[in-house]
Design a protein around this nucleic acid. Structure first.
Lengths: 266, 266
DNA sequence: CCATCTTTGTGCACGCGTTCACAAAGGCAT
DNA sequence: ATGCCTTTGTGAACGCGTGCACAAAGATGG
């Protein structure tokens, strides 16, 4: 799901698969928990269970980092924590800025998971002048006008966008122009960035929609068709706060397949 | 990002690839925007650009849903909006509960992206008695004691967990026991659920760690020296196994349970 | 009605990721 | 030291997802 950045074919032996990189934080979390319980070593089987993955996959993932285990024993917890932290770049300090201090931005600012992993919130930035100076999570909110200087002064290379969708691209452009090369985007928009800039997105409603898909399928399997009727009825009563966008024909559609399109210019 | 238990390879001929399902919300978002601008039709190329994907991929994705396009013209926007919505199950009403009304939970409750897509927040639940009755996003927070009855009374099948890591599994168990079959988990923990229950997780710090990895690599490419050299050396020599035991350079112990998000009662 | 042009739908090949299965490696007891 | 037992590390097979490239389908203009 990496964006922009063209995948590295095999320029160097340093080619750690993207899928593996995405799992390293998972292993690190499980290992940290073990470390705090002073567990000295752990087998691939145990660690895999704790991380919620397959043990073979875990071993292969670690094999990309090197041979850090001891056959017949397992992995040294502390050592592995260090190796993974170093690989992920968490042994250094990463100043980040959060742009858009609404509900979500404030929640992110208060989120403890950042600070505990080497990420330091350098500044909170919002476009609303009324927010300027107001303390959030112990930091005074700065106005958007200061964005460039904040990035520059703190050497920020990672930016978090938590603005409304409409402002995201503009904020993104300014961040990139100011020197940010990695962006975590919470706004429901596709961001266009130049090569060399990484963008990862988190869309809360997308995850929910995927769940709905599976949920619908589960319901459809158990009780043969027919749920559509009740569903249509329920849907009619909702949509109160829904946008003005007219929902396509919620009229009595039924058949799971081959149903007549409600809105379709033949 | 995969779900813990989504292995349903070919339950039915109705097998839409998981990767495709994950992109449908993306297309839907782009289509909705076009619909609001009253654009009648759109080509796969245009839509693909708007959604940030490859046009061939988009066409293949749509082919799993059926032949909804017109050669030489493109796709009818309204019709496609309806088809995708129906496929995702968004034409029906999905009552959801959010458990854990801290910073993140409150942000989720206020998030407009839910309501606009058929998701209705049926209730906000928190374990803190002091929170009970307090209005958040226009809804009174309910106490955990009422969890089961809320699920039952509202026919909730989707639950959102935004509690600290320590409470997540317990909440999850109760939700499942009460009838919830889909869970969106924001707590940094691996949830164990019985078969038939879908879990999707969103971990804010994981995304940031992945960015840090790439960021470090980018920095290492430009300026060879420093940590990059040491890292390469350690990784290259596979024979150089655990010799010395470098202490985790994360600088002392972070807070215990370094994962716990700063949500919930302080 | 026919020719041309546009865009879809898809067969095919390729590469990545996952999983299996097992030999090699190390610890441990005797 | 020797043999047994445990667990790692990885070669190989398999399946899924992606992207190319093109034929089929339909619109459009003459």
């Amino acid at each position: 799901m990496a964006t922009g950045r063209t995948h590295r074919p095999a320029t160097r032996s340093r080619g750690i698969p993207e899928a593996t990189v995405a799992r390293l934080p998972l292993y690190l979390r499980a290992l940290t928990a073990l470390s705090e319980r002073s567990v000295p070593t752990v087998s691939s089987e145990e660690l895999a269970t704790a991380a919620g993955v397959n043990s073979a996959k875990l071993r292969k993932d670690f094999s990309y980092l090197g041979s850090y285990g001891t056959r017949g024993v397992g992995y040294d917890v502390e050592y592995l924590v260090y190796q993974i932290s170093r690989e992920l770049g968490l042994t250094q300090d990463w100043p980040v800025v959060i742009v858009g201090i609404g509900n979500l931005g404030a929640a992110l600012a208060n989120y403890g998971g950042f600070a505990s992993r080497g990420f330091r919130v350098a500044a909170l930035i919002d476009a609303d002048p009324a927010m300027a100076g107001k303390p959030v999570a112990g930091l005074p909110v700065r106005h958007t006008d200061e964005l460039e200087s904040i990035i520059s002064d703190n050497g920020v290379s990672i930016g978090v966008i938590a603005t409304p969708a409409g402002a995201a691209q503009q904020v993104c452009d300014r961040l990139v122009a100011a020197g940010v090369t990695s962006i975590l985007n919470f706004a429901p928009t596709v961001l266009v960035v130049p090569d060399g800039v990484d963008v990862r997105k988190v869309d809360l409603s997308i995850e929910l929609q995927i769940l709905a898909f599976h949920e619908q399928r589960k319901a459809g399997e158990e009780t043969v068709p027919g749920t559509a009727a009740a569903a249509a009825g329920a849907a009619a009563g909702s949509g109160a706060t829904a946008s003005a966008r007219p929902r396509a024909a919620t009229g009595g559609r039924k058949g799971p397949d081959g149903d007549v399109p409600a809105v379709m210019p033949a």
